[in-house]
Nucleic acid binder design. Structure first.
Lengths: 134, 134
DNA sequence: TGAAAATCCTATTAATTTACTCGGAAATAA
DNA sequence: TTATTTCCGAGTAAATTAATAGGATTTTCA
């Protein structure tokens, strides 16, 4: 998704290209992009010169959106989602803890967009160039 | 650890007792307490009427201390710890993301103490009593 | 002193998850 | 029409997690 964001506005990127740039297996990427497409985060263009593009601008896709699709929403503990399971009061102090951790992660992932990542990446490159004395 | 905190200042709690209160297998608890003891978070008293006690007050043990021992420190991605692995600049934007997530979780877990959990638990019980009209 | 109650220690196992592989069908551009 | 590419579903290997098991050691207490 980072590669698609970097490339946003240009031609579609094929799985083969992304696989090479990010060093992730083609077969595996295929699976991931299947899910991302069904979730509406990317659009696919089939056939030669096809590939994938983001279906929204990078500024409107958060890391959390992507993780929710690829890894599922965070499940720190069953008792958070499945409240009826939690019949035993002793657990409840723990439950509050899991909720705080989950919310904290969601807060981070859903506030960082692909655009942020691209910007971080670009400014990082500039700093690296300066350090090398360029 | 929550049970030990609830019981802090009184007699040692045996694995059998904790197993019953928290509905966790005795065998499994044994393993966990082995690690906790080696890490210095609990003291053991062997023999009849023995068991475990916290080696510091609940206010001085954070949830993060416990999780670091039982689950190991958070490893969101290898490239955070093992910086030399990360030779490819393309990864770096992602790396910053993993660091932010990790730090966020650590911030939560290392700021909540066992005492906090006990207090939450106790005030929760009071509220529950009130709701029941007691 | 001996039996019961505990921890201590190491090895094994079953279920689940994760990353990955594979083969072939369908769509499209050149 | 052929090469390129997505689409789809099934299968696999390694790692992790929670749990199990058995026996040795330590300590209390009657």
């Amino acid at each position: 998704m980072f590669e698609l964001a970097l490339n946003y506005g240009s031609e579609p990127l094929s799985i083969k290209t992304i696989s090479e740039k990010q060093n992730i297996s083609e077969y595996y990427l295929e699976q991931l992009f299947g899910s991302l497409r069904k979730a509406g985060l990317v659009k696919s263009i089939r056939g030669a010169q096809g590939g994938y593009v983001l279906s929204r601008p990078p500024s409107e896709i958060t890391v959390g959106d992507v993780l929710d699709v690829l890894e599922g929403p965070i499940e720190i503990s069953e008792c958070i989602e499945d409240e009826d399971n939690c019949s035993r009061v002793e657990y409840c102090a723990t439950r509050l803890l899991w909720i705080k951790i989950r919310d904290s992660v969601n807060q981070v992932t859903h506030s960082i967009t692909l655009e942020d990542m691209v910007n971080d990446y670009k400014s990082m490159n500039i700093i690296t160039s300066i350090k090398r004395g360029e």
